[in-house]
């Protein structure tokens, strides 16, 4: 199993797109904190920003594009055509002839993804929160370690969510478009919370409740409950993806 995980780590980190996800995901949040610093200072000074306990942690959201890209390409790179000479040929053939036990393969892929994203999330969280402390330290309480850990968990679960959807769709474009639009341009999940309180339990919305305290939320959900609900989403989608992956012809 160790050699399988090593192989999957090499595969993932050998893809240029993975580095786009790693670099973007890691840099976006700290850059936003830096760019927003003058505005944030003014808002605090003017008294329009009174609840500063989420500062820094809330900024981590923009970096989620990183784990989304990573989660999707772990799967989509297997299904990409390897060349114009053989349009039906894909890396998945090489992967499954090397590792024919599909569930073991998925276990190795999942482990590799979790390791990479957890490392990325830890670095990003530490850098972003340290930067927030340096810039606004006198106004912002240092966040509890559990909240930082919850943010890292949120990133990791988001990557696994993207990965599970890609396993089901066997393609990168659909899940990536959906997830990125939903997390940046128009948050369909957020809009739905305006329609029904049930939407508060959608994975991306509920997951953020693990570490965001802000009050603009229709339903009170405790952090641990939030974590369990998001984990349940991920486990359910992964189970569907795994069953399909196990049964499908390549």
């Amino acid at each position: 199993m160790v050699s399988l995980v090593r192989a999957e780590l090499r595969k993932l980190l050998g893809l240029p797109t993975a580095w786009v996800g790693l670099v973007l995901g890691t840099l976006l949040a700290p850059v936003v904190v830096l760019l927003n610093a003058p505005y944030t200072r003014r808002a605090i000074a003017a008294g329009t920003l009174t609840d500063t306990s989420d500062l820094g942690l809330r900024d981590l959201g923009i970096g989620l594009i990183g784990p989304m890209v990573l989660g999707v390409i772990v799967v989509s790179s297997e299904y990409t055509s390897t060349g114009k000479d053989a349009p039906g040929a894909r890396q998945l053939t090489a992967t499954l002839t090397a590792v024919p036990d599909r569930l073991r393969l998925l276990a190795a892929k999942t482990t590799a993804l979790v390791l990479v994203v957890a490392a990325q999330a830890s670095v990003t969280a530490v850098v972003t929160l340290t930067l927030t402390q340096v810039l606004h330290g006198e106004h912002v309480p240092a966040p509890a370690l559990t909240r930082v850990a919850a943010a890292v968990l949120y990133w990791t679960l988001t990557a696994l969510l993207a990965y599970a959807i890609a396993l089901i769709t066997r393609n990168g474009i659909v899940p990536l478009t959906l997830l990125i639009i939903n997390s940046s341009v128009v948050s369909v999940s957020y809009l739905l919370t305006k329609v029904t309180d049930l939407a508060a339990y959608l994975p991306d919305i509920v997951g953020a409740r693990m570490f965001i305290r802000g009050a603009d939320f229709p339903v009170a959900i405790a952090p641990v409950t939030a974590g369990l609900v998001m984990t349940a989403w991920v486990v359910a989608l992964l189970a569907v993806g795994a069953v399909l992956f196990q049964r499908r012809d390549v």
Binding site: G14, L15, A89, R90, T93, A98
Partner: peptide, 24 residues
């Protein structure tokens, strides 16, 4: 089988090395 099985973005050596690693 059809094609090389190598992702387009990978070098020949990088492709062979991950395959080798997967089988120890």
């Amino acid at each position: 089988l059809d094609g090389s099985g190598a992702h387009r973005a990978r070098t020949a050596r990088a492709h062979l090395r991950w395959v080798a690693a997967s089988n120890g």
